[in-house]
Amino acid sequence: MSTLNHQPALSGVSAGRKVKDRVVQVLVYVAFLLALIPLISVLWTVISKGLKRFDPEFFTHSMNGIGANDAGGGAYHAIIGTVEQVLLASVIAIPIGVLTAVYLVEYGRDSRLAKVVSFFVDVMTGLPSIVAGLFVLAFWLLLLGFSFSGFAGAMALSILMMPTVVRAAEEMLKLVPNDLREASFALGVPRWRTICFVVLPTAFTGIITGIMLAIARVMGETAPLLLTVFVTSAINNSPFQGPQMALPLYIFDQAGRPNDAAINRAWAAALTLIVLIMLLNLVARLIARLRKPVSR
């Protein structure tokens, strides 16, 4: 694939250089294939082993009254918990995240505060999830004296969601053409109405995509929930009272039990979780693709 071969006036590429070029090409291809091995292996094992218990009972029953070595049981309570916790986390994180992005793009632009916030949003992106859990533990549970609950977990998850939402919304707001804003200002529309009814609707689909990816990201978090939601085997519909369950916690809990029935439940839960996350990813990408220029 060397690019000079067709020029007869010059002597061709020397053998040594050709060999080096080829070796690197092979290495680069191998690197890509290496990445595919774990991906395919993980997906294959999860699908093949997860299907064993991917039955109606799994989705309609909790683990209440299921003995340590019994088969049967399901993840209904965990699915309820995950949905409630993730929704609560979204309710907390999305307004703060989107408004912060609006500040960074529309108001802050180069102010000192905006720079500091932008820097710390980056730092927050790298916050280990367990530290978010420890924070809620130290603040909400130990200091304020509340007990384990789905809401405590939701707070930890919302901390992990915020930076992702801010970044996604910020990118999208930056893409909104300035002409739109100026046209609106020229008509005498106040700034906040311009933002709410011109800028945000224009960026809407992009922001939704970012939010869904953020949700998909926190949905699989286990560590913070372990410290804040704890585990339970019974159905608890209230995220504000008593320990709940969540799908990742369920996987962790079942995987730690040394019998095949539990391991199979763990795989089925893993399959459920991956399907949920992939669906969110897929829908997010579809929305991003369907995105059309706004027309009035």
């Binding site: 998909a216 286990t222 990742p248 996987i251 962790f252 995987a255 795989w267 979780l273 996350i277």
Partner: peptide, 14 residues
């Protein structure tokens, strides 16, 4: 996109 707990399960079992 694969959650870390799934990597954990895969790691432990496979």
């Amino acid at each position: 996109a694969v959650p870390s707990v799934v990597y954990g399960l895969w790691g432990l079992q496979f």
